[in-house]
Structures are given as C-alpha cells and as structure tokens.
Write a protein that binds this DNA or RNA. Structure first.
Lengths: 239, 239
DNA sequence: AAGTGGTCTAGACCACTGA
DNA sequence: CAGTGGTCTAGACCACTTG
C-alpha cells in the first residue's frame, strides 16, 4: 500500500495523493478539489508546482477545471475502450495470395469514393498459424497511373501508413468497423473453412489529409486467430 | 487552411505551429524539435510558456522528451484504436429476461475466480430494435449473502460500476474479449435466430481494487444490432 | 564545458464566478 | 467584492548528454 514516493518530485507527490483520494472514493465525481491556494499551503509548494499536478490529473481524465469556480472530479467513462489491433501479425506466418490491379466492386468503390473508371491495387494476404490459415486480409488502394508505388506497398505488405512512415506519418487516421459474418466463397476458399464458420470481420478505412480516402481493407479472422482484446479504465486503480 | 488563432494564448499558438509541422511532414518521427531556448527566441516567449507547449504535445502523443538531449517527434501508433462500446443501448428498447441467483457454470466460475460453492447473481437482458431482438446480454456477479444489492443492480440493469457510481467509480477497470461465434441454444432462443446466425460476442470482465473480480458478462449481438466502430490516429490531421 | 531538459519559486495581471 | 483559475514572466539550481 505505502507508495514509495519520497524521492519523487513534489508535483508528482501531489498528483499521486489526489489520485489516491479519487481511486479510494474519498473524492468522487462532481466533488470540488481543494483550491490552488489551499494545496499550496497544504504542501508548501508554489502555485506553479500545484498547477502542474492539477494539469496532470486533468490530462489523465480524472478531473476537469471550471475557470472561476475550481477543479472538479470527472465522471469515469467505462464504455470507452482501447484496442490494440495488430496489423503486422508478428506472431503468425504470412503468405501472399494475389496482387492485382483491377476494377473495384461496389463496396470498395463506395468506401474509397472512386470514379467509375478508376482502378485499384488489391493485395490479399493469408495469415497462417502452424501452417493452417487463420485470417484472410484484403486491402485496396486507389491506383494512380504514373505514381505506382506498388513495390513499396508490396514490400511493407500493409497500408500506406507504413510505406509513408517517413513522410508525415501522423497525417493519417483510420476508422474501423468490427462485425461477425459468414464467409463468402472467396473467403471460404482462402481460409479453407465451411460456409457456416463464423468470422470476426474488421473493415478499415484509411483517411489522409483533406479527407482523402487512401486505403480500404477487410480482415476475416477465424476463431483460431484469437480474439480482440480491449481494456477500459485505470488498471492502477486495482492495485 | 489559415488557422484563426490570433486570439489564442501564446502557448497554444506554439503548440499549434509545431503540431502543424508534424502533421505536414516538416517534422518527422525521430526528428529533434528546436530546443527550448530556440523556441523562446523564435516566439519571444518565456521558458515556462514554451515548456507548456511542449508538454501539451507530449500529452497528445506527438513527441517525447529525452532529458539532456532534447525533444523528439514520436512514432505514430496506427494500430491502437479507441472503441466506444455502449453498454446502455440508449437507442434500443430493453427487456429483462431473467434475474436469478444460481450456481455458475465453469466459464463464469473461472472468470470470477469463485470457490466451488459460491453462487452468482445472473441478469439477462434482451435488447430490441423495432420490437425485434438484436442483442442478448448476460451478466454475472458474485452473490454475497448478507450484502445483496440486487435491487440496485436490477434498477441500473448493468454492471456494478454504475450502481457504485457514487463511491469510487474510478476504482474499476474492465477487460473485454471480442470474437465471432454461433449461438448456443439458449442464445438462439433469446434472439430468435437460427443456429447458423453469426454473432458478434463481447465478453467483459470487471475488476476492482485488489484485483477482485466484480463482474463478468457476455453480450451476443446480431448483425442488426450494428457493428462496433473504432478509430485510430488524429482526425484533425485530415482537415 | 556547453547545451539540454527537470524542478521549483515568486510575482504579476487578467477573466470569470458567486454572494 | 473576494475567491477562483488562466496566462505569462524572470530567475535559480540540478542532472544528464555530448564533445
């Protein structure tokens, strides 16, 4: 229980003390914290030191501030989860299936907002575990004749955020939809599974600057691939 | 394009300027930022003001700092997603199915780390849209004879984090597993679906202080319930 | 030794809130 | 009006990194 923080900087001690009050329920959502002046007196600290602590709590989502009134304990958001969705599949083997330039189907055309005659690069991949297919991954990128970076794409085998990692890699964000589906024939074939084998399906849209649609992909996962893990809340609070 | 930030505080202007450099690729992962001294000169700002800007960038995950060396641009994490998983199902109707106190099956026993004779409260719920079932939700909590808050649990109909929202609501965190499955007979019956109807299944474990397992629940979702939406990256970068 | 960030202090002025 | 936080400044001392 007794935290070893005697060597910690003062502003960290203050942060930890208030955090502990919140985790322990001595301070609850809506409660007003001690004012800056009170905390300065309590910890014999300068205003800036106290403010640094309060700012840290705010960044952690534990408090918010209302100028002119004071600092308050926030309400926890238990329904917001973090999910790490490994795209690299480092623990699995990989196998390339096909790399095509083709005319996209309607789903892809709509997702990437493509004109009627536009072509796409299609990269499909099979992910294996112990030689058996566990996931099937298909990705589409608009194909611009004249600037074909196909080789780079193939080499990285993933979305352009990786290929573009050296230039403005922060200039992308992605949206993902996760659902459960039964496999289409193409997917059945790739995964060597039956038509009633439930798949976890993740559809991912990669968006760049000016809201340009840069890539669209779908990943079909068999149960053997493993489940998605998500977490919510403050793990430290459990300790 | 031209950002209206003439009225912004100085430290925000500095933050925005550096952020724009990172989003535009003028600063890339591994690059060292200008030193505090240089930024003080560039913006005729005090050290504290510059440091406030740099701290903000760090909190946003765009930079990190290496004491003695300088500030550096971080590597973006494109595989870490945020998922909002609504537990309340505010847009759906709800229907209680059963509320029991019973002996748990092995899955629940293991998840909640229960002794052999321990009982659990089971609350199952059906979520409807337009009168048709779209999801089935089952939750288990250890049943402690003597402190049964069943009424409160029922009233809130969800996990104890809500019932306990007035006392130390931050003292919980949850882990969730998401996968695709076919329904067991119990689930088929609740959802009025066939045995080959693929379901999105989320299993959630609620953990409290001292790593005590407080609740365990499973939510079975039909395609009509909607898909899970996840996002990754900085949406602002696309603007 | 010079340059870098990390911590801490003291003081100033402003805008907002509430009695 | 007194109390609250928001912004900004100037200066001090320390520990670390690099040459």
């Amino acid at each position: 229980m007794a935290r070893q923080n005697s060597g910690e900087p003062l502003h960290v001690k203050i942060t930890d003390a208030i955090r502990a009050d919140i985790f322990a329920g001595r301070l609850n959502p809506g409660d007003m914290l001690s004012s800056e002046a009170a905390l300065m007196a309590q910890y014999t600290a300068s205003r800036d030191t106290v403010r640094k602590s309060l700012k840290e709590l705010e960044h952690q989502g534990l408090t918010y501030t209302w100028p002119g009134k004071g600092y308050f304990v926030a309400k926890p958001e238990h329904n917001l989860f973090s999910v790490f969705f490994p795209d690299e599949d480092s623990q699995h083997e990989q196998k390339y299936h096909t790399i095509y330039v083709e005319h996209p189907d309607d789903e892809v055309k709509e997702a990437l907002e493509l004109g009627p005659k536009k072509q796409v690069i299609k990269i499909s991949r099979i992910i294996l575990t112990g030689g058996r297919p566990v996931a099937y991954d298909v990705k589409f990128m608009p194909y611009d004749r004249g600037t074909p970076l196909i080789e780079a794409e193939i080499q990285y085998a993933v979305f352009p955020e990786i290929a573009a990692a050296k230039t403005a890699p922060f200039a992308f964000y992605t949206e993902m939809d996760i659902c459960a589906e039964l496999p289409r024939p193409e997917v059945q074939k790739a995964l060597k599974c039956g038509e009633n084998s439930p798949l976890l399906v993740a559809r991912r849209l990669l968006i760049g600057q000016n809201h340009k649609k840069i890539g669209y992909g779908t990943k079909y996962m068999l149960p053997e691939y493993g489940s998605l893990r998500a977490t919510s809340g403050y793990k430290e609070a459990a300790e």
